[in-house]
Design a protein around this nucleic acid. Structure first.
Length: 475
RNA sequence: GGCGGCAUAGCCAAGUGGUAAGGCCGAGGACUGCAAAUCCUUUAUUCCCCAGUUCAAAUCUGGGUGCCGCCUCCA
């Protein structure tokens, strides 16, 4: 039993075999840093995050490259609008990128190359392609000669003839074929530009990924990720450039995530129907957003709405409640003896099933269901009327806790960040109040007890009276 | 027009040959001094339609219908 990954290239799930025994190279198409990123972009960052986390869990080391596109039409346009330099614009949104991805509990890549820092490599690649006759210069521009690359279309399953028949590409007299795409572009007055053998210009969009991916991962690497919309033309062109140059396959597994839709329509910056992750983080916690995004398979489209987020919040809350419950129980004194009531077995079983789900093309939806099933079993034991906390049971609960933390926390990243207040003055103070209230309740002074409860609630502390004593948590 | 994908309960969603996971909502119940919170039980004779293959199909094949995406910047 191994990991299977759906490969866009073959259109099938394939057994995952990394090039190196223990290390996996991953390249992800990162953001164009001209704006805050939206929930759709977030998905494209969380998908590789989950893949990395899971492969990590399965014992692989990861080397992950995620690029910043910091030069293109959108960058130029926005910089002009805001009257800042392109570099200032880039720096601002790269900073924002890190703030937002950190908030979303997305683990950092190993390296974040920027397009503008790899111009030389791009020029090199273009020259090689010209030398091999895969590219030609025309005026100050350089184009890729699509017909020369026999396998053009293999990634997106497009046929050259069909593309031409239905093409919406503007016809340009300088191209041999309307589908030839730009490798290098002569710069216009006032645009940023670099010296090149073809005069002052700037790189086309697709070339940067070919250069940066192979520079840091070698000319054969394991996984390339991105949103489905990048399949054509971006990734198709990337394949053409890289393989025309190397003469062999470069990327082994192409992984594409589905869209986020709004009311059934794709969310995108160009349609202006998007929500930035910053806006959403004001209403929902990071773990809820993550949970929402991974509660469906990564290749399926997801419809975004508040009611969906609410549903995700409750579903996650159910998992978290049980973890809280387990943690509270582990802090209590237990009577000696007793068995684990099958909890250790349950933990093991859960881990096996979780692994099976994730092995199958990262089926996070199923993996979450596995966790829910575990939680249900635990609840049945822990909430039973005749429940007695024994040492044996605590052993079992420890297993449950560590399994849960490993799977939900390390792999899925849906456990809330530890409260900063822990270890501070806050906890003991709340404990004290809770104790006082318990005393007051014993004396049936419910008026005062309720007052304490209500006041604490106003302060964001929720009190729960349970058969095993009083539990509380910060909301 | 070409290519790709999807269609499972009120909603979200797993499930690629063996007789429908899970979550949300709803309903009932438990717990409680009252609450809040939580937990439990329950919710598809059936998987868009038609035909076929098979002992057996949500799952395979053929046809149809509907929706979405890509072919243009886009995660």
């Amino acid at each position: 039993m191994g990991i299977k990954i759906y490969n866009t290239l073959s259109g099938e799930k394939e057994d995952f075999k990394p090039i190196k025994e223990n290390e996996v190279g991953i390249y992800s198409c990162g953001p164009t840093v001209y704006d805050y990123f939206h929930i759709g972009n977030a998905r494209a960052f969380i998908v590789p995050d989950i893949i990395k986390r899971y492969l990590n869990y399965r014992g692989y080391k990861i080397f992950h490259v995620l690029n910043f596109t910091d030069i293109d039409d959108k960058m130029i346009k926005r910089a002009n609008q805001e009257e800042v330099t392109i570099e200032q614009l880039a720096n601002r949104f790269i900073k924002a990128y890190f703030e937002d991805t950190d908030a979303l509990n997305i683990r950092r890549a190993d390296i974040y190359p920027k397009a503008t820092e790899h111009i030389e490599g791009m020029i090199d690649l273009v020259e090689k392609l010209i030398a091999k006759d895969y590219a030609y210069s025309s005026g100050g521009d350089v184009y890729f000669r699509v017909e020369k690359f026999d396998e053009y279309g293999k990634l997106s399953k497009q046929h050259l003839e069909d593309l031409e028949a239905g093409n919406r590409v503007e016809v340009s007299g300088v191209k041999e074929n309307p589908l030839d795409f730009t490798l290098w572009k002569e710069s216009k007055e006032g645009e940023p530009s670099w010296e090149s053998p073809w005069g002052l210009g700037r790189p086309g969009w697709h070339i940067e990924c070919s250069v940066m991916s192979t520079k840091y991962l070698g000319d054969r690497f394991d996984i390339h990720t991105g949103g489905v919309d990048l399949t054509f033309p971006h990734h198709e062109n990337e394949v053409a450039q890289s393989e025309a140059c190397c003469g062999h396959q470069v990327v082994n597994y192409w992984v594409h995530n589905g869209y986020i839709n709004i009311d059934g329509e794709k969310m995108s910056k160009s349609l202006d129907n998007f929500f930035t992750i910053r806006e959403i983080l004001e209403k929902y916690k990071a773990e809820v957003i993550r949970f929402f995004l991974i509660s469906k398979h990564y290749r399926s489209p997801i419809n975004f709405s508040d009611s969906e987020l609410d549903s995700a919040k409750k579903s996650l809350g159910r998992l978290l409640n049980t973890l809280d419950k387990v943690e509270n129980l582990l802090d209590l004194d237990a009577v000696e003896g007793g068995g684990d009531k099958g909890l250790k077995g349950l933990a093991q079983e859960t881990e096996v099933e979780f692994k099976e789900a994730m092995d199958d093309d990262f089926n996070t939806a199923l993996a979450i269901a596995v966790l829910h099933t575990m939680v249900k079993e635990v609840n049945l034991i822990v909430n039973n009327k005749e429940f007695i906390l024994t040492e044996g049971l605590k052993e079992g609960l420890k297993e449950i806790k560590s399994t849960f933390e490993s799977l939900a926390g390390d792999v899925l990243g849906i456990l809330p960040k530890q409260e900063e207040a822990k270890g501070g003055l806050i906890d003991p103070l709340i404990e004290l109040l809770v104790e006082v209230r318990s005393e007051v309740r014993k004396n049936k002074n419910y008026e005062l007890a309720d007052k304490i409860r209500d006041e604490l609630k106003n302060l964001g502390v929720q009190i729960k009276d349970t058969p095993q004593g009083v539990e509380w948590k910060l909301k």
